[in-house]
Write a protein that binds this DNA or RNA. Structure first.
Length: 559
RNA sequence: GCGCUUGUAGCUCAGUGGAUAGAGCGCUGCCCUGCGGAGGCAGAGGCCGUGGGUUCGAGUCCCGCCAAGCGCGCCA
């Protein structure tokens, strides 16, 4: 596990040069400047670059190119850096030493499936709470996006050294659930030939009919033989458990699983709700108005106050959420928490932040990511997804139609903050039109080379990586060794959507290598080259697997 | 009306304040005496919504405008 990234190493070189230059009086600076090192877009500019001379030009009143030149003279020798050159108007470009690049093949092989791990989190406890769809219906396409995001983000954070808990918050209390129970009960009565009406605000989807029929099949008419209140209660318990089980099963189809399913009802049972409300009351953040209890979030900068206890005496969803975050931070002691919410909850973000602050928790410890709406398309035709009318496209249907891998790839490749179009036609095409298969094909090609070598009993463990001098070989290794810094970047920014793009670049680099370099050669004079290249292929496979695994995708050896 | 998010190639989308704005699909044309052609190479295609500002430097930051999505309940 790397605690000091390659990027950090280059930064250190620059910092050392600045320190030396200051000591010699070449740089008149009050404080040490922030050292920024980037990967240039143009490979002709090397592997790393810094624009520090341009940034310092004004403060030091030195021409940036001259400044760059004198800094370069003070950059220490390094085993990893081959050349350091000044480029106008004032960049310093670094190129990695080929011998060092080649050696990374051995490093990847040694680290195996841990390659890419970085120690950013120090194993501090972190929670990612996502999906958390009300158990009143199946997971649909929009939720699936959040599911994929949360799942991949959790994997990335795990690789970055955080002790991640993936959690699903089950909203199993409140008025929506009552409406659901009433809907199931009504459908249950209908299934047994009785007239019944859905409650107002009830759930009209066919799945409620199916659910009711299942209950009839399993338990007959027993719920008709008890008072309605009791029937609602008991049939509600059964329906809720069935729904949660269904949601869990559907999510498993796309490789999304949770460490914990947290029940809203437990907040009340275990007293967290009462403790959170008491805490707010003691801090004077609660006010009685119009027979209801309000959280005075406006004094903390929110645009309005919010009801936490209705005039009926029932707590609102917001009250539960406050108690839930009390539980996350104070009861369970998570250092940081990420919530992934759908776009329809964005209005809830400011008051959640103020509520957390009111509980005495630094609001920086809570990050709420919003995943925007998904429009489903079939070619050019828009598929309308609407939960109310009951004709939404579910996760199950989506996974069955396009497959779990394509599902994950396409949702993951977009930044969550943009509304996206999901083209079922494109996601389904099993051809080069589909980037999912482009990446998996590269992995399968890779695997088939190794399988062929094994079938010929070739032992490449003594391969000499210094033979890997073809530009396409070095380019492949250079792409491979970006994984650790990518993991670090994604963990810092909570942006796993870079992963599919990196996977595509890795595949491109591999295909390029494959076209240019014959790996297994029958010619005796190519023997050493074969061994070296097999080592490269093996290490590339490690990086492919790690990348696909972080995305939650499968790594097929045959397609 | 107010708030949040978004506007980049024909389409779907990337793009850490840096150097010549990228990928996939679609379009044109090439490439297999051998490990998987679901591949590779080359080309065409862009006032980065628009007008200002900050900066040595803006697709990126700030402000206005235009357009789209979502939200603005004692629902969740």
């Amino acid at each position: 596990m790397a605690s000091h990234s390659l990027l950090d190493t280059v930064k250190d070189l620059v910092a050392e040069a600045v320190t030396r230059a200051r000591r010699q009086g070449l740089l008149q600076l009050e404080t040490m400047p922030e050292i920024l090192v980037e990967r240039p877009a143009n490979p002709g500019h090397g592997d790393f670059a810094t624009s520090l001379p341009l940034r310092l030009a004004r403060a030091t009143r030195i021409n940036p190119v001259r400044l760059a030149e004198s800094l370069v003279e003070h950059i220490p020798e390094s085993e990893i850096i081959d050349s350091v050159v000044v480029a106008p108007p004032g960049f310093i470009n670094f190129r990695l030493r080929d011998s060092w690049v080649q050696q990374q093949v051995e490093v990847v092989r040694e680290q195996g499936q841990e390659y890419g791990d970085v120690d950013l989190g120090g194993q501090q406890p972190m929670m990612v709470e996502f999906v958390s769809v009300n158990p009143t219906g199946p997971v649909h396409v929009g939720h699936t996006r959040g599911a994929v995001l949360g799942s991949a983000l959790s994997r990335v954070l795990g690789a970055a050294g955080y002790a991640v808990t993936q959690e699903y918050y089950v909203n199993d209390a409140g008025t929506q659930m009552e409406a659901f129970y009433g809907s199931v009960y009504a459908r249950y009565q209908e299934a047994l030939g009785h007239q019944a009406e859905l409650p107002s605000g009830g759930y009209r989807g066919d799945y409620v009919i199916d659910l009711a029929q299942e209950i009839v099949d399993a338990e007959g008419s027993r719920y008709l033989e008890m008072p309605e209140a009791q029937a609602l209660n008991e049939i509600g318990d059964v329906a809720r458990e069935k729904m949660v089980a269904l949601i869990r099963e559907d999510l498993t189809r796309i490789g999304v699983s949770f460490d914990n399913w947290f029940s809203e009802r437990d907040l009340y049972r275990d007293g967290d709700y009462q403790r959170a409300v008491d805490l707010l009351r003691n801090k004077d953040y609660l006010a009685e108005r119009d027979n209801a209890t309000w959280f005075t979030s406006s004094v903390l900068g929110d645009d309005k106050d919010n009801v936490v206890i209705r005039s009926s005496g029932d707590p609102t969803y917001f009250a539960s959420d406050i108690a839930y975050h009390y539980n996350k931070f104070i009861v369970r002691g998570f250092q940081s928490v990420v919530n992934i919410w759908g776009a329809d909850h964005q209005g809830h973000v400011p008051r959640m932040n103020t509520a957390v602050a009111a509980l005495g928790i630094n609001p920086d410890r809570l990050t709420i990511l919003i995943s925007q709406m998904v429009t489903l398309k079939r070619g050019t035709e828009v598929v309308r997804a609407s939960k109310r009318s009951g004709d939404f496209v579910t996760l199950r249907e989506l996974a069955e139609e396009v497959g779990a891998d394509a599902c994950r790839y396409f949702f993951l490749a977009r930044t969550p903050s943009t509304q996206m179009e999901f083209d079922l036609e494109l996601a389904k095409k099993e051809s080069s039109e589909n980037p999912v298969y482009y990446v998996q094909y590269a992995h399968a090609r890779n695997a088939s080379i190794l399988n062929l070598a094994r079938s010929q009993n070739i032992d490449w463990s003594q391969g000499d990586v210094t033979l890997l001098n073809d530009p396409s070989e070095l380019a492949l290794i250079r792409t491979m060794i970006r994984l650790p810094e990518l993991v670090e970047h994604m963990a810092r920014t909570l942006e796993p959507h870079h992963l599919p793009h990196y996977a595509t670049e890795l595949a491109t680099a591999f295909h390029g290598f494959y076209e240019n370099c014959r790996v297994i050669s029958a010619l005796p004079e190519d023997g050493q080259m074969t061994l070296a290249r097999l080592k490269l292929v093996e290490s590339a496979q490690i990086v492919f697997r790690r990348t696909l695994e972080l995305m939650g995708m499968t790594t097929p050896e045959r397609m």
